[in-house]
Amino acid sequence: MSAGSETSLGAARRDGLAAAQRFRLPFGGQRWRGAAGGWQGSGEGSSIDFHDHRAYAPGDDPRHLHWAAYARTGQLTMKLYRAEVAPRVDLLVDASASMRAEPARAARTESLVAFCLASAARAGAPVRIQAVAGRRCLPLAEEQVRAEGFWAAAGEPETGTGAVAPEGLQGRTGAMKIWISDLLYPGEPGAVLRGLAAGGGCVLVLAPVLAGEAELRERGNMELVDREGGAARHLRIDDGMAERYQAAYFRHFNLWRETARRMAVGWARVDSNGALASALAGEARQAGVVEVVA
């Protein structure tokens, strides 16, 4: 990355931190498992939120006997409360060439990573970060990412692989698994989402997109070079081809959205232009991928 890019990525991290002032990851609507924390767990715990009743068993904490029920029925009944846990966050970031080739998308990715880290930190959720490039997953140190930024920590991507779908994306059981990717690779979205959804928890997909990418602006004979693999191909782009391309582009993302909806995966495109907070206020907020900070 050049010095200018680093300056831009630094601004992007600040933009992500600023967005974290307004929005957070949707920790509130989930039942989490994990170490004690400040978020409702999926089992019984010691919080003040009522969870259920059951008959008293020897060894139960007598402080939680339901005295009012005993007075009415003469049976010892225990009041159960929810557990309070700290959710775990698995942040998987697409580090392929297409993600960093466009400065706007690279910056948006940087700001999204910063947003997720800041939001997880506020929730007290430990974060595990992996940079995904094709079929390779590279674990990154959270501290390094916080200090240097995602792209600096991820290093140079593997080139020449072409646009391929990531394989073996998995998160920890019960964790919030966030997949930040432009989704610009062929293949059926369900395969990726099923891998992420395995083990329960929450799956979120954030796709930094470029508005101009939805269309082919130029006309005429083109030498189209794949950013992922560098392979070139000659093709004439006319209005008909441009229209078909645009339709295919939207069809591609509609397929992702429908698949995510069917699999109860939070999915949202995030415009790479403008402030992240403004971008999240749109489709991401409506889809419940982010929540407004109270």
């Binding site: 030498e223 794949d226 070139a232 391309y245 582009y249 591609h252």
Partner: peptide, 16 residues
């Protein structure tokens, strides 16, 4: 032909 770099070439491959 003008040289254009694309991240969405896989979409075009499906079209042509």
């Amino acid at each position: 032909a003008r040289r254009v770099e694309l991240s969405t070439r896989f979409l075009i491959e499906a079209l042509a």
